[in-house]
Amino acid sequence: MENVLSILFCLSLFYVSISSRVKGYVTVLQLQGLLLSVIIVIPFIYDFSIFGIILPVTLLVVKVFLIPKYIKKIILDLDIKRMIEPTIQQFTFLLLVIVSMVVIFVVSNILSQRTELNVIPFASGFSAIVIGIYIIMFRKKLIVHVAGFLILENGIFLFGTAVASELPMMIELGILLDVFVVVFLMGIALNNISSTLKGFDVTALGRLKD
């Protein structure tokens, strides 16, 4: 079951790498949040505990409702254009993503022979981290950077579930809070930047240095 969901997660990564609209990113973020919540909740179906359910529920609320809603609000408020303004062609980007994913899956498979880990969730999480970084690298818009950052963070979550010794719940909750605060701060920063500089390119931020 976990493997199927992880593969769905990977497919969402492919979608995000060819999507050229900001809205597509938000949808993918919602989907990924949902998938993560389900993946985390699976072990508790057999062994229910009230504490165990806190994390998936918070995850669901934050990732599926709060953050996407906040991003949509920023897009509306600041009247950001819907296109994502990539710096390289979508096809090249997809090729890069595919190559990276193949390498990651092969490497994970080799690694799994030495240590005990769940290959498919591990590799999916790893891919999400790398693709999150790619998105930050090859996209101009700040709001897309936020999305890339969130995808990276989703990858860390998946990664955490895949390794044999799981991350303690407190840490995962901490990460969640961290991300929420970061997104919030970035929203505020975007608001301020839009009043100082026109457009939301990171290239314009280069001019801010003294």
Partner: peptide, 8 residues
């Protein structure tokens, strides 16, 4: 560089 993307 001035751009954060290069650093990443």
């Amino acid at each position: 560089q001035t751009d954060i993307r290069y650093y990443i």
